[in-house]
């Protein structure tokens, strides 16, 4: 399944020296264009600052000041990106704002030479250029890059590499922070109670656990009808297998299984006893006995208290799981 996802997704797998394969999401042209625009504004800002300094310093030595200004202009024009990407570990200020970073295709940091090459070759990626004169505005100094070459090349490879990236084997990846959401909270205490009715010797396979996690983490976004529709496919055969009443909510059953799989497995103890030859149906302790009798103690811990939750400052992603 993972392989199929990688085909249609923009994920790139990287193997680290620690021999771990992890996924990066490749940054697309829109995000990179935004970063480029921010960098452009910063570049103009720096140029304006240097211009002011030149004007001040020019009172003393005009020629030298303008020489400095022109050299600064040249460096900013061609080496702004290269300098920042080398000294800021693959990021320019614009890239940092957008949360993207340049890496080699092997996931390694780029070196100075790669940073220089990919930035010098941007002048090919921005071809063909239009000039304002084509629109009848007499301003030969101002040209409009169309970035068509870069876009076409980006569309032809899996990593969204422009020509400059292809040449020095780099790619731009997203580096976003994600909040640790932990185990999904179940809003219905009945799910937990239902978990007790599930056969204690039922083993939840790996794929079933994954399907359950996918469902329960997302069910918060679904309407009631949609939940019923989705949960039916897995719920129906399971109800039959467990011999539970037909009118049991499928959604609730999946939640109960999820609870069993990820949070608290009351069946562990029972299964151990089955293996040791004891009857699983004997009353092992008071709680189970009460559960079997259908009386639930008021002191039963709510699922919320047991599960991993986030610290209060956790952000919007965590709130959505609730």
């Amino acid at each position: 399944m993972q392989a199929d996802v990688a085909q249609i997704d923009t994920k790139i797998e990287v193997v680290t020296p620690e021999n771990i394969a992890f996924h990066y999401q490749v940054a697309g042209p829109a995000r990179r264009a935004m970063a480029f625009l921010i960098d452009l504004v910063i570049r103009l800002g720096i140029l304006f600052g240097v211009g002011c300094l030149t004007a001040v310093f020019g009172i003393v030595a005009g020629g030298v000041a303008i020489l400095g200004y022109l050299i600064a202009y040249f460096l900013l024009d061609w080496f702004y990106g290269a300098l920042f990407e080398t000294f800021m570990n693959g990021q320019t200020p614009g890239k940092r704002v957008l949360g993207i970073r340049v890496l080699t295709v092997d996931g390694q940091p780029i070196n100075g030479l790669q940073a220089v090459i990919r930035n010098v070759l941007r002048s090919v990626d921005l071809m063909p250029v239009l000039s304002l004169e084509m629109f009848g505005i007499p301003a030969p100094m101002y040209i409009i890059p169309t970035f068509m070459v870069g876009l076409v090349i980006m569309a032809t490879n899996r990593r969204f590499q422009r020509l400059g990236d292809l040449v020095c084997r780099t790619m731009v990846v997203m580096e976003e922070r994600q909040w640790l959401a932990g185990v999904a909270r179940l809003d219905d205490p009945r799910a937990m109670r239902l978990a007790d009715y599930l056969p204690a010797d039922f083993q939840i396979t790996r794929t079933l656990a994954q399907a359950l996690a996918h469902y329960v983490e997302r069910r918060g976004y679904y309407s009631e009808a949609r939940r019923r529709e989705v949960a039916r496919h897995l719920g129906e055969p399971l109800l039959r297998q467990f011999g539970l009443p037909h009118d049991t909510s499928h959604d609730l059953l999946l939640c109960a299984l999820y609870y069993r799989a990820f949070v608290a497995d009351v069946g562990d103890e029972a299964r151990r006893k089955v293996r040791q030859g004891e009857s699983p149906f004997g009353p092992p302790d008071a709680t189970a006995a009460a559960a079997a009798a259908g009386q639930f103690p008021r002191t039963w811990p709510l699922p919320q208290q047991q599960m991993v939750t986030l610290p209060p400052a956790a952000g919007p992603d965590a709130a959505r799981i609730l």
Binding site: H23, V173, Q178, A181, V183, A184, A209, Q210, A213, E217
Partner: peptide, 20 residues
């Protein structure tokens, strides 16, 4: 058998730490 969103979180976390 970590849930998928935790796995995704780990991918991102390892990626960020790797780059640092």
């Amino acid at each position: 058998q970590l849930p998928p969103n935790t796995v995704q979180y780990l991918h991102r976390l390892v990626g960020r730490a790797h780059n640092q």
